[in-house]
Design a binder for these strands. Structure first.
Lengths: 190, 190
DNA sequence: AGCTAAAAGTGACCTAAATCACTTTTCCAT
DNA sequence: ATGGAAAAGTGATTTAGGTCACTTTTAGCT
């Protein structure tokens, strides 16, 4: 477990510096969780008690429309944060599903604990501020890509940006992430 | 000017508390700027020296594709923050345009000053952390709407969410924000 | 008030991508 | 190794929305 916390510490220290004392305080506010492939981290209608940092593994965050079609909001793997941020922030029932595409391990942070470490340790507030800012920038990029690019060039762009992801995820899920049908994606290529 | 700073202070205090001393320090790191309708706040290829908080007015942030078509990333009005966050964060030349749809006034915050006030005043770091998180959640919503909804229901959804915006903005820009052609939007209705 | 330009509406036609139906391939679990 | 299920590929058809061309309406200016 110590080595896993070490990974998390490195993740923080890529952005901010923490004293040993601060780190011990921060670390004590995380819980460990482990799930097998196909198990759910978050479900629609269920409480969303945590934000999750992924130690290892791969998950998908998605919503299901009236017709039962799955739309993927995010893939998240090692070093990524994932949650139903909206439900988590407002402490409301989940609005999306998050489940494991591989056996996965997480560090879990409750809202109360997050606010506690942010207000106790300013560097942590800055860490999450900067992380959140990066996330915002990424989502803006994705929105622009949805507005300006054809399905095919979004695919090429993704192949280029996250080549490893394609290896780990069935193409039909990539299609759902890009907002294209499985059949159409299969007709592209490359 | 004092009354304008008062508005900004209220904006901060909706999220965090600041002592008078802290506020004076924070305030001193903003510059004032005023622009007329049609003037540019940010242009592609130009340095992006600031993040802007809108005191009054309305702007659009957009990119232009190879065919000369405009794609609106964001509308921003009173109390909103706007910038080319990506270029600003990395101190690179602008990748989008931001211009005024109405005469507008701004408080401008440089990257250096932002980091300074965030590391000097923890409450400010928390303010931006929480703001950024809200922004992230909004963008996730928008992505989901682009993935799951038809153009028409995205329009209805926007009418519902920002009824005031529709009054202030020509429909062709709303179309561009929703990722629909002007003609198609005109055929909806409502 | 009157003139111009931008915005909005509308019809005809076109196209990218969705959907449906089916086949082939790949991946696991026993 | 092998049988079954999930994934991927492919052809035929449909459709939402784009594009083009033109008209009508609205909003700013002087």
């Amino acid at each position: 477990m110590e080595d896993k916390f070490q990974l998390l510490k490195q993740h923080f220290e890529e952005i901010v510096s923490l004293t040993d004392e601060e780190w011990n305080f921060v670390q004590s506010h995380f819980e460990f969780k482990s799930l097998k492939k196909h198990q759910f981290l978050i479900q629609v209608g269920q409480p969303v008690d945590f934000e999750y940092w992924i130690i290892k593994g791969l998950v998908k965050a998605y919503s299901i429309d009236e017709k039962g079609k799955e739309h993927i909001l995010q893939f998240a793997m090692e070093n990524y944060w994932v949650s139903d941020h909206c439900a988590f922030q407002h402490q409301e029932p989940g609005t999306i599903f998050v489940d494991c595409l591989e056996d996965s391990e997480f560090f879990c942070l409750s809202l109360e604990n997050r606010e506690k470490i942010c207000f106790e340790v300013p560097a942590v507030a800055n860490f999450f501020r900067i992380k959140s800012n990066h996330g915002y920038i990424n989502l803006q990029q994705r929105i622009l890509s949805l507005l300006t690019m054809t399905a095919e060039s979004r695919y090429e762009y993704l192949l280029n940006k996250l080549p490893t992801l394609i290896q780990r995820v069935p193409k039909k899920l990539i299609a759902s992430y890009l907002g294209v049908s499985r059949e159409t994606l299969s007709r592209f290529n490359s």
